[in-house]
């Protein structure tokens, strides 16, 4: 399955990456080459095989629902690029701009 530049732009938006035109061109070529190698999987007959998401046979690991100390607010905010009044600062999510 070849990958096109418009596929790469679409995937970049899904991955939240602002790529330059140059990066798009280069990634189209590189991802195409990698996918070419990976395509061997399409030739395996795996129709009746169950998929594996996790290598160990474990389900529903339970623990007691107890309150225990977690990160303090100070620690949680310690590495944030911008904080205000004990909260993370984010740009406008709806609308945008100063007049939103």
């Amino acid at each position: 399955m070849p990958i096109s530049e418009s596929d790469v732009r679409h995937v970049a938006m899904l991955a939240r990456l602002a790529l330059s035109d140059e990066q798009v061109t280069q990634l189209t070529e590189e991802l195409g080459a990698i996918l070419g190698h990976i395509d061997e999987l399409q030739h395996l007959d795996l129709a009746d095989v169950q998929p594996t998401a996790h290598p160990l046979d474990m389900t529903n690991v339970m623990r007691p629902d107890e309150v225990r100390p977690g990160l303090t607010r100070e620690d949680a905010l310690a590495n944030a690029p911008q904080t205000e009044d004990g909260a993370f600062v984010v740009p406008p999510i709806v609308g945008g701009g100063d007049d939103a």
């Binding site: 984010v90 740009p91 945008g96 701009g97």
Partner: peptide, 13 residues
Amino acid sequence: ATDVLDLYTRSRA
């Protein structure tokens, strides 16, 4: 950043 999407996509790239 102009909005949150701009912030995400440029910070990551």
